[in-house]
């Protein structure tokens, strides 16, 4: 039985008449990388900021290791660290000073703070920027400064709101490794993102939030399997035609589209069905030149679940 790091119970947050999050129920387990996926304005950031005790729930509650964000907010803040979507600094702030102060406020002594800040800044490639003012930093570097705060704090629950937005591709991969390492060291990581590749790359479980409501929850493969006939087995075969008997047999497995020497079969759990398909081709003596199984992307999952395109919505 996995222990729960965060329990979100009937959580609703309203700003005036606008309902940002509507009756959300969700459990996040200890030591997992959990993703909140959804377009901008879907309620991801509001949920994260409430876990971090920045906002108070309008109704319902959120518990971090059993501590209520409404009644024990101070205890929760000791357990949670957050890297905000937009870096929270003034233009004249310098990364080193900012992070050293952050290290002190999260509990390090003065000498420890200097050491841990240098270590983290070097890890993220920020050391050379340490004495620049914030307005002189690129968007990606500012995001790294936000992430550095969490790495310094090493909280039990780390909240990362779009951690690699504005970060270049090379740095993204490095940051994903850093995030996984944080998890390996015992931190539960919650990531909000609208980058499906990032979600697939880093997250173990995902919640899809759309217009303030939870639409789907599960591991990536569970979500993909939730689309009926979502997997595609694409076969390129020798010769121009396909025997009628083979076609009939394939239609028993899934929906079939045949085009000259390429055949597409839409199935559920494609990785299992591909064996049956190969066997059928062998039985009808049709030589397979190439065969591949394509899973639906998270974008497909999002489209199927919400009826909207994630990129368009974002």
């Amino acid at each position: 039985m996995k222990s729960k790091a965060v329990e979100i119970e009937n959580f609703t947050k309203k700003f005036g008449d606008f309902t940002a999050v509507d009756n959300l129920n969700l459990d996040i387990y200890e030591n997992e990388v959990f993703g909140l996926l959804g377009p901008n304005g879907s309620g991801k950031t509001t949920t994260l900021l409430t876990i971090a005790t920045v906002y108070k729930p309008t109704s319902g509650d959120i518990y971090v290791y059993g501590h209520s964000v409404t009644r024990e907010d101070y205890v929760v803040r000791k357990l949670v660290g957050i890297a905000f979507q937009d870096p929270k600094a003034m233009w004249i702030d310098k990364p080193y000073e900012l992070l050293t102060w952050h290290a002190r406020i999260v509990g390090y002594s003065s000498s420890e703070a200097k050491k841990v800040v240098q270590d983290v800044m070097e890890l993220l490639g920020l050391w050379e920027h340490r004495n620049k003012q914030f307005y002189q930093l690129s968007g990606g570097t500012r995001k790294k400064v936000e992430l550095a705060k969490v790495l310094i704090q090493k909280p039990r629950v780390a909240i990362l709101d779009e951690p690699t937005a504005q970060v270049d591709v090379l740095s993204k991969h490095a940051l994903w490794d850093v995030i996984k390492k944080l998890r390996d060291e015992g931190t539960t990581v919650i990531i909000a993102t609208n980058d499906m590749f990032e979600a697939e790359k880093v997250c173990e479980r995902i919640a899809i939030i759309y217009k303030g409501k939870l639409r789907a929850l599960g591991t990536i493969s569970e979500l993909k399997d939730s689309i009926p006939s979502g997997d595609l087995v694409e076969v390129q075969f020798e010769g121009g035609g396909i025997p009628e008997g083979l076609l009939r047999a394939l239609r028993d497995i899934g929906r079939v589209e045949a085009r000259s020497s390429v055949l597409k079969v839409y199935v559920e759990k494609g990785e299992e069905k591909v064996i049956d398909i190969i066997e059928l081709f062998r039985r009808y003596n049709v030589k397979i030149l190439r065969i591949m199984v394509k899973e639906p992307t998270l974008d497909d999952v999002f489209t199927y679940i919400t009826g909207a395109k994630l990129r368009e919505e974002s």
Partner: peptide
């Protein structure tokens, strides 16, 4: 006031200090 407009205040209220 500047902090409030730039939401730096979000950072302050998320820190492990009491209100």
């Amino acid at each position: 006031g500047i902090e409030l407009r730039r939401e730096v205040t979000h950072y302050l209220v998320s820190l492990p200090v009491t209100r």
